[in-house]
Amino acid sequence: MNEEKEVEEHSKPLVLEKLEAAHADALLAQDESRGTVVVVVRKERVYAVLEYLKTDSELAYNYLVDVTAVDNSRMESELMRFDYARFMVVYQLYSYQGQCRVRVKVPVHENDLSIPSATGLWRGANWLERETYDMFGIHFEGHPDLRRILMPDDFEGHPLRKDYPLQGRGERERFNFDKQNA
């Protein structure tokens, strides 16, 4: 941990250098969180950036650790930073070769919830994107099977959104056994 920090103080992480060279127009912001490089990427360019991170022979971020999202609707400071985009889709990548991580964040506006699917790059993105769809309602364009994964198929709403009540809208008291068994 200490070694990593010293290196970072002296030189820019390789991933930032290479991204700035190859995809400067895609980067909205860059950050550092507990030793992990964080880049905020324009939605239109996210697939290209992810593909670059995965396929570049020096970076080789070949492992998609997680796809999730954040609802910033009650986080004024975050909203202001990125043109009042309500959601932030988050990709966590890991490089077996460089043994390091990078976090790619993508602001998504509520009036256009679509974002390109990463299933073409990592097959493992399938269920991760389904979960993000289930919980936040983000639509991953090009996903082969974008269904709910955790909640029942006939569930309404997306429960990890901040405006969804913690105790639900009465789903736990009333549901149709016959319909669900069918």
Partner: peptide, 13 residues
């Protein structure tokens, strides 16, 4: 687990 997804007592059903 007083949440949207959990049955609050199976004796309801």
């Amino acid at each position: 687990f007083d949440t949207y997804t959990l049955i609050q007592g199976v004796d309801q059903f």
